[in-house]
């Protein structure tokens, strides 16, 4: 049944079809976190999932990454049904999740190391991505010596170094101050332009969404999370927060969000 619904004509990197997810508390109470969510992402597309806190954004990403299975519906990545964590996906965690016992370079070369790539080769790879994310000079720092922005850079480099072609970023800048955040948004654009990947990016910040996205998927404001509206953003890059179309779209989304909430 579901199989038939799939849009075969176009190749998608990520496809979520009528995905629902519930959690059980105790024997009776069941909380529905996601309800019939449909999301598609094409190759090298920058998709932003926009939703307020506690709307199931992290849960959706965990389903795509294969950490958990949906209660109903299907998730396809690279046209294959997701059954287990897939190294083709890079996951940047909301709470960083760097390995505290590894230095910056140790974290970044972890993917190649697991694949059994030689020490010399993986140092090379790691150094290349350290440069890409702008962490030169911090190679031998431990995560607890880094600021939030730097930790997320390590997370991004770790995914890049693992040769992932899909990047899931779960509110990567949620814990940063406004200035660092703006700077990091520009940085992530720079990295993405330098090395294109399919990116899914969670945020609860409308400005951030409009600045980054090819497409914005708005989730509803309360559980269960549902797709409320999808915006295609065709403002040319590089975007400025003061562009007229930028402001117009932002107002439109903001008005819509108020309705949701």
């Amino acid at each position: 049944m579901e199989e038939a619904n799939r849009d075969i004509k176009e190749a998608y990197k990520i496809e979520c079809i009528n995905v629902s997810k519930s959690y059980n508390y105790g024997e009776k109470t069941e909380v529905k976190v996601l309800d019939k969510v449909n999301i598609k992402a094409k190759e090298n597309e920058f998709v932003v999932v926009l939703g307020p806190g506690q709307s199931g954004k992290t849960t959706l990403f965990r389903l795509i990454a294969g950490f958990e299975r949906p209660t109903a519906g299907e998730v396809y990545v690279n046209d294959k049904k997701v059954a287990s964590p897939n190294p083709k996906i890079g996951f940047v965690f909301q709470k960083y999740m760097l390995f505290p016992w590894k230095t910056v370079i140790g974290n970044i070369e972890m993917g190649p190391k697991l694949m059994g790539i030689s020490k010399k080769k993986r140092r090379e790879i790691a150094n290349y991505y350290i440069k890409l994310v702008g962490l030169e000079g911090f190679e031998n720092y431990y995560p607890n010596q880094l600021s939030g922005g730097m930790k997320q850079r390590v997370g991004i480099a770790r995914s890049y170094a693992n040769n992932a072609d899909i990047l899931l970023l779960d509110e990567p800048f949620g814990q940063l101050d406004a200035q660092t955040r703006m700077f990091m948004e520009k940085e992530i654009m720079r990295m993405w332009n330098q090395e294109k990947k399919t990116v899914c990016f969670v945020t609860n910040n409308v400005d951030e969404a409009v600045f980054l996205a090819d497409r914005i998927i708005c989730l509803e404001g309360k559980l269960p999370g549902r797709v409320n509206k999808i915006y295609n953003v065709d403002i040319p890059r590089p975007r400025e927060f003061t562009d007229i179309p930028f402001i117009k779209l932002r107002e439109e989304i903001k008005n819509n969000m108020e309705l949701i909430l």
Binding site: R62, P85, I89
Partner: peptide
């Protein structure tokens, strides 16, 4: 041990 660290290492292909 932080359970999400297991997710982090699995998604890297461990």
């Amino acid at each position: 041990v932080e359970p999400e660290l297991y997710d982090a290492i699995r998604i890297l292909g461990a």
